[in-house]
């Protein structure tokens, strides 16, 4: 997997252009001046060891196991595969029925994130401009409510009463109204100078157009960071789809993976293959949006993303 990952990154990078913070020019020097790989390696050996050796090693180990047949894994659980085989991947793909589920997951993870961002920005703007005083209190309340235990069955009964149970749209609506984004956008919008509003108003720019053409581009890093965290958290949610989506046709890929894990508890090579299939899209999204993360964090979006993640993982038991 490390190989695939590196490749994915290499492919992804040129399209991403220069990172927005590379104005100092130091960055481009490191890779851009065409030093040999060996030089880079010797210079970066310690970094690679630290990042890959500690944080990726367990995953690499898992990925290597995915290329072994089950019987070989049992006899030789720690070594390299004697003959690399991809059958686990094809088996997992077929057995897990991941194809349709991946499409569902894409809907469940991207739509609520997009909706809650849009809603959040439209609501956050007037508040950031001071039409509402108690934001700090609300903000605090919100953060702490993330740590209140969520009763799964009351949530279910509520969803059922509102007709959101066992439907794709219902699931999207439920996840769109989490509201976390809203509070964190408030802080970010405050950093946008007020003069912009006035200038736009002078130009006869309507509210909706103003938000869409001025504010949203201005908030790009925050939105991207928030989007990534929201996407990842929604993608990884296992328990909520279990309760809210009964029909197999509606399952997201994590629900499928959950059952897949249950069906193949001992067959680690097969499970590894399944995990890699399910995790790959998240890794891709993350790699693509990574460059916005650091900037977005400055606007407090990480807290928002984190709170969403915390709230979602509450249900993840």
């Amino acid at each position: 997997m490390s190989n695939q990952l590196t490749k994915g990154l290499d492919r992804g990078q040129p399209g991403m252009g220069t990172p927005p913070w590379s104005d100092s020019g130091r960055a481009t020097k490191v890779v851009g001046t065409g030093r040999s790989i060996l030089q880079v390696l010797s210079r970066h050996g310690a970094y690679i060891l630290l990042s890959a050796g500690i944080f990726a090693l367990p995953l690499v180990y898992l990925a290597v196991q995915a290329f072994k047949p089950y019987t070989e894994f049992l006899r030789n659980p720690t070594g390299l595969p004697s003959g690399w085989t991809a059958t686990n991947f094809s088996d997992a793909w077929q057995q897990g029925e991941f194809a349709r589920q991946l499409v569902n997951s894409l809907v469940y993870a991207s739509m609520p994130t997009a909706i809650s961002i849009l809603l959040g920005v439209f609501l956050a703007f007037p508040i950031a401009r001071g039409y509402f005083k108690q934001t700090n209190l609300l903000y605090g309340l919100f953060v702490f409510s993330g740590f209140l235990p969520v009763g799964l069955i009351p949530l279910f009964i509520e969803a059922q009463a509102l007709g959101l149970y066992n439907s794709m749209m219902g699931y999207v609506v439920m996840n769109s109204l989490v509201g976390a984004g809203f509070f964190f956008f408030v802080g970010y919008i405050r950093t946008i100078p007020r003069e912009r509003d006035e200038a736009a108003a002078m130009d006869g720019c309507g509210y909706v157009r103003f938000i869409l053409t001025i504010i949203i581009p201005e908030m790009k890093p925050a939105l991207a960071a928030f989007g990534v965290f929201g996407f990842v958290a929604a993608w990884n949610n296992m328990i909520l789809p279990l309760v809210m989506l009964a029909d197999e046709d509606l399952w997201p890929v994590t629900r499928g993976l959950y059952s897949f894990l249950g069906e193949n508890v001992q067959n680690w090579p097969l499970i590894s293959a399944g995990i890699i299939i399910v995790a790959a899209p998240v890794v891709c999204v993350f790699v693509l949006a990574q460059r916005y993360l650091v900037e977005g964090v400055a606007g407090g979006a990480v807290a928002g993303g984190h709170a969403v993640a915390a709230q979602v993982s509450r249900n993840d038991g």
């Binding site: 990952l5 590196t6 990154l9 990078q13 990172p19 913070w21 590379s22 100092s24 130091r26 960055a27 481009t28 020097k29 490191v30 890779v31 880079v40 970066h44 970094y47 690679i48 630290l50 990042s51 890959a52 944080f55 990726a56 367990p58 995953l59 990842v232 990884n236 949610n237 296992m238 994590t254 993976l257 959950y258 894990l261 995990i275 995790a279 998240v282 890794v283 993350f286 790699v287 990574q290 460059r291 993360l293 993982s313 993840d316």
Partner: peptide
């Protein structure tokens, strides 16, 4: 913290475990 593609890559690797779900 340094800027640059290789560091973007290292950061992505370090962040990687955070995007996996708990059962995994």
């Amino acid at each position: 913290q340094r800027r640059g593609r290789s560091f973007t890559f290292y950061r992505a690797i370090i962040f990687l475990p955070g995007i996996l779900s708990v059962p995994i």
